[in-house]
């Protein structure tokens, strides 16, 4: 059943492949142009800023895309088109509907990362080995899944378009500016830094920055995010059982 739902989404996204491709390429390029380049003349680091900020572009573009795809998909299914009732009258389980949205969000987020990484590497004139590329992708998987699950969870509740835009904006601000993606955490108050350093997502960004600097990788963020994802997934599935059938 899940396979059929994924095939259904494939049919939909296939029709919009050109616009998706434009988003996949424009999003990292715009982040590079409007955040990395201007900030490179302000932020001073031991290493070249635009190289340091590359993981910020990967995380922000792929996380934001995964979040937007999931929240929009779930909102459309649950609130906009009567699709939920159409799906619920088939032998599908609520969990399968939730999983399909999360999987699609994660897959598109991964495609975004697959495009963002080489694109940023090219724009920055830097070198990334296949092994580094693989480890960065590995680190990004739980982060992208986290945003896909969060988007699905919020999509169950967000009915209003203005609320949706506000939430997307908030997610962008958090991803881009508050967890050390584009602004080094040294610039924030020490109390804030202590808190952010405990957030697994921040550890993943830190880890990606270490990979491009050829330093040893931290796996704590990776595993903690996976654990948190499982917890969030359980909540999302439980809420779907609570809210889908009236």
């Amino acid at each position: 059943m899940l396979k059929v739902l994924l095939y259904r989404d494939w049919l939909k996204y296939k029709k919009n492949s050109i616009s998706l491709l434009i988003i996949f390429t424009m999003l990292p390029m715009l982040l590079h142009l409007f955040l990395s380049i201007p900030l490179s003349s302000i932020v001073e680091l031991d290493m070249r800023y635009i190289n340091w900020a590359a993981p910020g572009i990967w995380v922000t573009s792929s996380g934001l895309l995964a979040f937007c795809v999931s929240v929009l998909r779930m909102k459309k299914i649950k609130h906009d088109s009567g699709q939920l009732d159409a799906l619920l009258k088939t032998p599908l389980r609520n969990g399968e509907i939730v999983f399909s949205v999360i999987i699609i969000g994660t897959i598109l987020g991964m495609i975004q990362a697959l495009i963002s990484i080489p694109l940023t590497v090219m724009l920055n004139n830097e070198y990334l080995s296949i092994v580094q590329f693989f480890f960065i992708l590995l680190q990004l998987i739980p982060l992208i899944s986290f945003y896909a699950i969060l988007g699905t969870l919020l999509g169950i509740f967000i009915k209003d378009g203005i609320a949706l835009v506000s939430v997307i904006l908030l997610i962008f601000l958090i991803l881009a500016l508050s967890i050390g993606s584009f602004l080094p955490l040294e610039n924030f108050p020490i109390e804030y830094v202590d808190v952010v350093n405990m957030i697994p997502l921040s550890l993943i960004i830190n880890s990606c920055q270490m990979i491009i600097q050829n330093e040893s990788i931290l796996y704590s963020g990776f595993f903690l995010t996976i654990l948190f994802n499982i917890f969030l997934l359980l909540i999302t599935v439980a809420l779907s059982y609570k809210t889908f059938r009236k």
């Binding site: 739902l5 259904r8 049919l11 088109s81 009567g82 159409a86």
Partner: peptide, 22 residues
């Protein structure tokens, strides 16, 4: 149902095939 709940992002054939497969 009484209300229209066809999937507006799929063609008519795709709507029928997907629901058959589901």
């Amino acid at each position: 149902p009484q209300t229209i709940d066809l999937d507006d992002e799929l063609t008519v054939l795709e709507n029928l095939v997907i629901f058959g497969r589901l």
